[in-house]
Simulated scan of single mutants.
Amino acid sequence: MRISDIIRSKGKGVVTVPPDTDVRTLLTVLAENRIGAVVVSPDGETISGIVSERDIVRALAARGASVLSEPVSAIMTADVQTCAPHQHIDELAEAMTLGRFRHMPVISDAGGLDGIVSIGDVVKIRITELEVERDSLSTYIRTAAT
């Protein structure tokens, strides 16, 4: 299965915030959208960084509550790994595991932000694939036994 299949099923919508958004506002955006990360983008298309719940927690632990007034650009990950729609989800899962992150923006062939994929999306696909395989094997065993 390809990343484009995930994007097709979940949609291309990506929540973004400008780099000057304060962390307190970011927390509201995360809560309202029930998500764990947002892409930091000045225009909704280009990627300046990504900021996740983990980034917020680490910044709070290091600098205290004053971080809530800082811009997200102060806590974001600027070196963002991205993927392309044509890549296989095995590549995505491996990159997420090795890099120890849970969200990866998808960049279209034209270079624009095409979506975002989470480790939850990957797990959901894997479970579906295993269920289909189980059902196929069960059917095979039942038909072979008769």
Score class of each variant (00 low, 15 high):
residue 9 S to P: 04
residue 115 G to H: 02
residue 94 E to S: 13
residue 65 A to H: 09
residue 71 P to K: 03
residue 5 D to E: 15
residue 57 V to E: 08
residue 14 V to L: 08
residue 99 G to I: 06
residue 109 D to K: 15
residue 87 Q to G: 01
residue 122 V to I: 14
residue 98 L to M: 12
residue 6 I to C: 01
residue 131 E to G: 02
residue 95 A to C: 06
residue 12 K to E: 11
residue 59 A to Y: 11
residue 59 A to G: 13
residue 109 D to P: 13
residue 12 K to D: 09
residue 3 I to L: 09
residue 99 G to L: 09
residue 60 L to G: 11
residue 130 L to S: 10
residue 34 R to Y: 04
residue 10 K to Y: 14
residue 106 V to R: 06
residue 44 G to P: 04
residue 83 C to D: 01
residue 17 V to K: 00
residue 127 I to F: 13
residue 59 A to W: 14
residue 124 K to D: 14
residue 95 A to G: 03
residue 66 S to M: 01
residue 74 A to M: 09
residue 39 V to L: 01
residue 115 G to S: 06
residue 40 V to Y: 01
residue 124 K to R: 15
residue 133 E to R: 10
residue 67 V to R: 15
residue 79 D to Q: 14
residue 117 V to N: 06
residue 82 T to A: 09
residue 3 I to W: 07
residue 139 T to Q: 10
residue 24 R to Y: 06
residue 104 M to C: 09
residue 120 G to E: 15
residue 140 Y to H: 10
residue 138 S to I: 09
residue 125 I to V: 15
residue 80 V to D: 00
residue 50 I to H: 00
residue 132 V to W: 07
residue 43 D to C: 06
residue 92 L to D: 09
residue 47 I to P: 03
residue 132 V to L: 13
residue 6 I to L: 13
residue 80 V to L: 02
residue 67 V to S: 13
residue 81 Q to P: 04
residue 60 L to Y: 12
residue 47 I to R: 04
residue 114 D to L: 03
residue 90 D to H: 07
residue 47 I to Q: 07
residue 80 V to R: 03
residue 100 R to S: 15
residue 1 M to Y: 11
residue 46 T to A: 05
residue 122 V to K: 03
residue 45 E to S: 09
residue 138 S to A: 10
residue 71 P to D: 06
residue 53 E to K: 08
residue 107 I to H: 04
residue 38 V to Y: 05
residue 6 I to N: 05
residue 119 I to G: 13
residue 60 L to F: 10
residue 43 D to S: 06
residue 103 H to G: 03
residue 76 M to W: 00
residue 21 T to G: 05
residue 142 R to H: 09
residue 33 N to G: 10
residue 5 D to C: 07
residue 82 T to C: 12
residue 100 R to P: 08
residue 18 P to C: 06
residue 55 D to I: 00
residue 10 K to F: 10
residue 121 D to E: 10
residue 96 M to V: 04
residue 21 T to W: 01
residue 63 R to T: 09
residue 144 A to H: 02
residue 32 E to V: 00
residue 15 V to W: 00
residue 86 H to L: 07
residue 41 S to L: 00
residue 71 P to S: 07
residue 79 D to I: 11
residue 107 I to C: 05
residue 145 A to Y: 07
residue 98 L to C: 05
residue 84 A to R: 15
residue 82 T to H: 14
residue 26 L to K: 02
residue 102 R to K: 15
residue 58 R to M: 12
residue 40 V to Q: 00
residue 37 A to W: 00
residue 39 V to N: 07
residue 65 A to Y: 08
residue 44 G to H: 06
residue 66 S to W: 04
residue 145 A to C: 05
residue 96 M to N: 09
